[in-house]
């Protein structure tokens, strides 16, 4: 199914049952996000969305459509202007920053297009950063970080400063940081945006392998091929969503 088919072809709203929606890992209702200013920017408008346990979702759409904004709201990085949002059944729209921070550290793992590694720290230290705000005891950090690095094939670069890694290695290190605390959801914003095709394929394979171990994934992409690998593609267009099963 091509992007055009999704946008201009068959479009339908989420057709899952109410029971399925209530059991969803992530559930958003009437989410609106407006940036105040001289001219307010309506980034998201009245969005309803669910992500099931273990489900792989692509957020696809043109640049400026609101994909990253939606990802930020789902990942509790931004507070919606209106609407309600449940994470694993817990309402979050009006939750305290303490609650939101706890959920971010326990439920979500983040992968960014720009990697956001600490260049002067080693790969191992970067991965351990993913455990810094979790409940995992510090004595376990080294072992868990080593396991995460092994899962992404970077054991041999464990003590290398992050600034010396290639682009593909940096993203794999970032993935290791994102999964080190075994989150329920991986949130990836254009994870292959700064990679060549070879490394992009490798990263996508890695994400698929991690999915087989459990956990949901929400991936922002403008790449149709990436979207095609997901369970479901949610189209974001001018701040609104349409969704269409990928298969």
């Amino acid at each position: 199914m091509s992007f055009n088919d999704i946008v201009f072809g068959r479009l339908s709203s989420d057709s899952r049952t109410a029971a399925d929606q209530a059991a969803a890992l992530l559930r958003a209702e009437s989410i609106t996000l407006t940036y105040d200013g001289v001219t307010p920017v309506h980034a998201l408008t009245d969005i309803d969305l669910t992500v099931g346990y273990g489900e792989r979702i692509a957020l696809i759409g043109p640049s400026g459509a609101g994909k990253s904004s939606l990802l930020n709201v789902l990942g509790l990085l931004e507070v919606p202007s209106a609407g309600e949002y449940w994470v694993d059944g817990q309402p979050t729209a009006s939750a305290s920053e303490k609650t939101r921070a706890q959920l971010r550290s326990s439920t979500f793992g983040f992968i960014f297009q720009a990697f956001h590694l600490l260049d002067r720290r080693s790969v191992l230290e970067n991965v351990k950063l993913g455990l810094f705000f979790t409940e995992v005891p510090q004595r376990e950090w080294n072992d868990r970080a080593a396991q995460a690095l092994e899962s992404v094939g970077l054991t041999h670069r464990m003590h290398t400063p992050a600034r010396l890694l290639s682009g593909g290695e940096r993203q794999r290190a970032a993935i290791a940081r994102a999964v080190v605390h075994s989150p329920s959801v991986l949130m990836a914003d254009e994870p292959t945006g700064n990679l060549d095709s070879r490394n992009s394929a490798r990263v996508l394979e890695l994400l698929a392998a991690l999915h087989r171990d459990g956990g949901a994934q929400v991936i922002v992409t403008h790449d149709e091929d990436v979207a095609a690998q997901m369970d479901r593609a949610i189209v974001v267009f001018d701040g609104a969503v349409r969704c269409e099963p990928a298969h």
Binding site: A101, R104, F110, A114, H116, L129, F132
Partner: peptide, 16 residues
């Protein structure tokens, strides 16, 4: 800013 934003993203609160 990027590093500090990352720390917030992975669970850091403003007081952290």
């Amino acid at each position: 800013t990027g590093e500090l934003g990352l720390r917030r993203a992975i669970g850091g609160r403003p007081r952290d």
